[in-house]
């Protein structure tokens, strides 16, 4: 049991961040929302559909209205940037090729990479790959986009670009964005609302400015990046003296 009772809601046009230290159940939450995992108990509604009683076809139907950005983009390495973005269109629609082309170029233009259409993912930098992946996740104009650690392993410039892009796409396309991250500084700049998860429960929530000023020990430690706090630096262990055999002396 990783998650023990999360009450979370998101509105259209909002960027919601879910934060917490590694292994707190953030990824599990994403898997639940996307239907990759089924909750053992409880209610889970995404876009008005009850996910608990949904079969495989239902999950797939739901996912067409859902975009997801994976940690490192997860672009298809055997396809060009263009084919990557065209993939969901070709799989799910019967649009004629020139229309697919127009739509793909439109999405690529939105992330500023129309010029990179004929490159392969191996020729892209980490930030560019993630922008392409973002263009791919919005290809079918979903209502909700999930981001799994969109800021991991990026240089400061790319970080800013991605953050900016998430905000801008959410506003212009009128989507709901759900960002799972532990990058506090970057995400606090762009999100509307933050949930903090620790050990499977929501420990704090609020707007970014509220959380910056928060006095809750866990949030304070997390936001300011302190080594000691409720999350201990030491892994639970017997006393150091006893382990070194000095207890007997």
């Amino acid at each position: 049991m990783v998650l023990k009772g999360i009450n979370l809601s998101a509105r259209q046009g909002q960027v919601i961040a879910i934060m917490g230290s590694s292994g707190c159940g953030k990824t599990t939450l994403l898997k639940l929302i996307s239907g990759a995992l089924k909750p053992t108990q409880g209610v889970l509604r995404v876009a008005g559909e009850d996910l608990v009683g949904l079969d495989q076809a239902g999950v797939y139907r739901l996912r067409r209205r859902l975009g997801m950005l994976f940690q490192f983009g997860a672009l298809f390495t055997d396809m060009t940037v263009f084919d990557n973005v065209a993939f969901p269109l070709r799989e799910h629609t019967d649009l004629p090729p020139d229309m697919v082309r127009d739509m793909v170029l439109l999405k690529l233009e939105a992330v500023g990479l129309r010029g990179a259409a004929e490159l392969y993912p191996s020729e892209l930098s980490g930030g560019m790959a993630r922008r392409v992946a973002l263009a791919r996740s919005v290809a079918l104009d979903p209502g909700l986009i999930l981001y799994d650690e969109p800021f991991a392993g990026l240089d400061p410039i790319a970080l800013g670009v991605i953050g900016d892009l998430i905000r801008r796409l959410t506003d212009t396309l009128g989507l709901t964005s759900l960002v799972v991250t532990h990058d506090v500084q970057e995400s606090l700049k762009i999100v509307d609302y933050v949930y903090f998860i620790s050990e499977g429960v929501i420990v704090a929530e609020g707007r970014p400015d509220e959380l910056r000023a928060s006095e809750i020990p866990y949030v304070h430690q997390f936001v300011h990046g302190e080594a000691e706090g409720p999350v201990s630096y030491h892994y639970p262990a017997p006393s150091y003296q006893a382990d070194l055999g000095m207890g007997h002396v």
Binding site: R63, F70, Q71, F72, A74, L75, T77, E91, R136
Partner: peptide, 19 residues
């Protein structure tokens, strides 16, 4: 190829795109 597609989450991404 398939192992790498799985390791780099390409298969998961495909499934997320309902494919």
């Amino acid at each position: 190829e398939i192992g790498l597609m799985k390791a780099t989450e390409q298969l998961a991404a495909m499934e997320m795109m309902a494919v």
